[in-house]
Computed example of a mutant assay.
Amino acid sequence: MLRRLRETAPAGLVPLAWLFAFAAHEGALADRTVLVGHVVMTALLVAFAALSYEDMRDHPVLRAWLAVIVVGIPVTAAGAYGVWSGDTAFALLAVVGWMALPAVALAYTGRVLPSAERARVYTLGGALSGVGAALLLVGTAVPVAFLCVGAGQTAGILAATLTY
């Protein structure tokens, strides 16, 4: 049961995470709520990496995603620090980090997998996520940035969940 949860939960958590991030960015959530969200996500990432290491270390695509999770731990912790301290640079690092890290892994996944395994979905998801990160960094069309990232990363995780 735990294995099935690890395999399918991200399909729901990814879009929820981007809705949460957008709501936080728009000021719809209290700082304490955002801080708790970062702490909980950091703990979940640590647990997921530890529980999934054996399953993910041998396949090149899964190893890339394991790297995203492991690198994402300090990125998420930086976001927690940013919210706690009021340092917006750390909060921005967390948001852009979670836009860019999966963008790279999605693009890699799309390049490595055969087209029969929905490679185009991953490539498109990576492109959308990268566009979203760029839009957020330049500070224009911020809602569109979150929409691009949420749609791209959700498409990627749904393709993975449905295929595997």
Rank of each mutant, 00 (worst) to 15 (best):
V112Y: 12
V71Y: 04
S115Y: 12
T42E: 09
I69M: 13
V40N: 09
V121G: 07
G139D: 13
L106G: 14
A103E: 00
G12H: 06
V70R: 03
P114Q: 01
T123A: 15
G72Y: 07
S85H: 01
S52I: 05
A67D: 09
L113G: 03
A64H: 12
Q153I: 04
A28F: 11
G37R: 07
R63H: 15
L35I: 02
A151D: 08
V112P: 02
I157F: 04
T123V: 09
P74F: 09
V70C: 08
A64T: 15
A155Q: 04
A100L: 15
A91S: 14
I73H: 07
V71K: 08
A103G: 06
F20Y: 13
L45G: 05
L92E: 15
S115I: 13
L162D: 05
T88P: 04
G130M: 09
L101D: 01
R120H: 12
D87E: 14
G139C: 11
H25I: 10
A23K: 06
A30D: 11
A107F: 05
R118T: 00
D31M: 13
V71A: 10
S129C: 10
P74M: 05
A105N: 05
M56G: 05
S129M: 03
A91L: 14
L128H: 01
L44C: 14
G152I: 13
G139A: 00
V83C: 05
V131K: 00
A119H: 13
R32K: 06
L92I: 12
Q153D: 13
M99S: 03
V131S: 10
W18N: 00
A103C: 00
R111Q: 14
I69S: 07
S52Y: 02
G82P: 11
P114F: 06
T140Q: 08
G72E: 00
M41W: 14
A49T: 00
A28K: 15
V144E: 07
V144N: 01
Y81N: 03
A133S: 05
G130D: 08
A50V: 13
D31S: 15
V144W: 07
V61A: 08
Y53S: 01
V14G: 08
L92N: 09
T154Q: 10
T42D: 09
G130N: 07
A11L: 03
P10T: 05
G86V: 11
D87W: 12
V112H: 04
H38C: 11
P60A: 01
G79W: 01
V71D: 00
A155Y: 06
I73G: 02
I157S: 01
L66S: 02
P143G: 00
P74E: 00
L128V: 10
A160C: 10
A133Q: 00
C148N: 13
W84K: 02
L45M: 13
G125Y: 05
L51V: 08
G132Y: 03
L93Q: 03
G125F: 08
A94W: 08
A67N: 06
G139R: 06
H59S: 11
A9N: 04
H38Y: 15
A23R: 13
E54P: 00
C148E: 12
P114I: 01
V71I: 10
G82V: 09
A47F: 11
L29G: 07
G150C: 14
F22Y: 15
G126Q: 04
F20R: 07
A160V: 11
D58C: 11
V61I: 08
C148M: 14
I69P: 00
V83Y: 04
G79K: 05
L136D: 03
V61F: 06
